[in-house]
Computed example of a mutant assay.
Amino acid sequence: MWKAIASNALTLFIVVLVAVAGLLAWGKRQYEGPGPLAEAICFRVDRGASFAAVSRGLETQGAISDARIFRIGADYTGKVQGLRFGSYLIQPQTSMDDIVDQLTRGGQSTCGSEINYRIGVTTADVVLRELDPGTQRYVEVVKFDPAIDNTPPEYTAAIDDPGIRFRVTLAEGTTVWQVAEALKRIDIMEGDIGALPPEGTLAPYSYEISKGSNRAELVAEMRDRQSRILNDLWAARADGLPYATPEEALIMASIVEKETGVPDERGTVASVFVNRLRTGMKLQTDPTVIYGVTKGQGVLGRGLRQSELRGATPWNTYVIDGLPPTPIANPGRASIEATLNPPTTPYIFFVADGTGGHAFAETLAEHNANVAKWRQIEAERARQPSAQPAGN
């Protein structure tokens, strides 16, 4: 009898062990295998959220099949306490194991919403956008100019969202004054900028900020970045350039930046100015004259007058020899690189060609022919009727 009882108990014990092993193997497959998610989602982890709440949220949104397995697996791997708040892009069929790793690995992803304070040459606006998980592209929610527009309620609500990200994007060709004025209007930032830094010393880039970021510290970061770019590219510059210092190269880069909006033309434009400096020819570039009129404080908004082209200012390169005393804008890395490593060309002249780019010429006769073509294009455009507003 006792032998039978012992035999049955042993059999039951083995069955239980087999069942437990099977259950563990099943759970491991559930945890490490492909998840049930059919389409990408943007999953939000609030600051201070518990792992249990996150597990339930993931199960509700269909990212995991079982919240309990998710918690047990995370606990077994020792990652329960590593949960980090933020917004996470979870791709289809992502395993529980990979989701745990994503949510505990290192902070916020690029999913969710962001507010971008964009500082451009002619405008400075604010864009609220959010990522569409399906297309992984940002969708614009609202855009406005804080200098002239009322603040949209969507923006006001967004800045109080603890998961929102903020950035300041500085475009190539802005002036230091324009940047300073735009930063003053960013309502989530604090502190005074102080004295304006020298012209041209702020690097165009997209900078991460947060609520309460200090304006002066951001400007210092912009200056530091531009200094590193200039020093690195100066060290790798071509031989025989007509610039004695990195500061002179920065001046030239700012002129190149303002002369063309076509990326592929930067090097050729730089070569024209290098050729002029080498031959002792005046630079004769309109953007420097404009800077002498505006001092970088805003956009001229009209054509130059003959009196301004002849007027004596330190920046009028139709009058002065060589480079002006300061940059005329904040040049980007590409313009600095083009200035310090321009191609070798025979060109001395260039003029707009009607396509947004320029026609380059080696001789004055070629240049005059290009100018005549451009004036014909301008005349034809002037004869075209203005577009009429659509009727209601």
Rank of each mutant, 00 (worst) to 15 (best):
E337V: 01
T279H: 07
L309F: 13
A312Q: 15
Y291D: 08
G298H: 15
E308L: 11
I336C: 11
P331Q: 14
G311N: 11
K295N: 12
R276T: 11
S307P: 01
T317I: 02
G301S: 00
G280R: 07
I328H: 06
G311D: 08
T285C: 08
R302I: 07
G332F: 04
Q297Y: 02
D286G: 00
T339C: 12
P287H: 02
T288I: 15
R276Q: 06
R310N: 13
R278N: 15
G303T: 03
N330H: 05
A329Y: 09
T339W: 04
N330Y: 06
T339Y: 06
T288Y: 14
T279P: 00
L309Y: 11
G332D: 06
Q284E: 15
G280Q: 05
K295V: 00
P325M: 09
A334Q: 14
Q284V: 14
R302D: 02
R276W: 04
S335Q: 06
G332T: 05
T279Y: 01
G322C: 14
R310C: 00
A312R: 15
S335Y: 01
L309R: 14
P331K: 14
G311R: 05
R276N: 05
S307D: 13
Q297C: 00
G322R: 12
I328L: 09
T294M: 03
V299G: 06
G332N: 06
K282E: 04
L304E: 03
V319R: 12
A334M: 13
N316T: 10
A334C: 05
R305P: 00
P287K: 01
V293T: 10
G292E: 13
P325C: 08
A312Y: 14
L283K: 07
G303E: 09
N316G: 07
Q306C: 02
G280W: 10
I290N: 01
T317Y: 03
P287V: 03
A329F: 04
E308W: 11
V289K: 02
G298Y: 15
Q306Y: 11
P327Y: 07
I320S: 08
G298S: 14
L304T: 11
L323Y: 08
V289C: 01
L304S: 00
T285K: 01
R310T: 12
N330M: 01
G296N: 08
T313M: 10
L283C: 05
I290A: 00
R278C: 00
G303D: 07
P324V: 01
I336V: 14
T339H: 10
L309D: 11
V319S: 02
R310A: 12
A312D: 15
Q284F: 13
G332R: 03
P287N: 02
R305G: 03
L300D: 03
D321S: 12
I320V: 09
T326L: 12
K295S: 08
R333N: 10
S307H: 04
M281V: 13
P324F: 09
K295C: 01
L283S: 03
G301A: 01
G301W: 07
R302L: 10
R305D: 06
L309A: 10
I336L: 15
T285D: 03
L300F: 11
V289L: 10
L304M: 04
M281K: 08
G303Y: 04
L277C: 11
P314A: 14
V299F: 12
G332S: 06
G311P: 05
E337S: 13
I320M: 04
E308M: 10
G298E: 15
P327L: 11
L304F: 05
R302H: 03
N316A: 04
T326Q: 12
G303N: 10
I336P: 00
G301L: 07
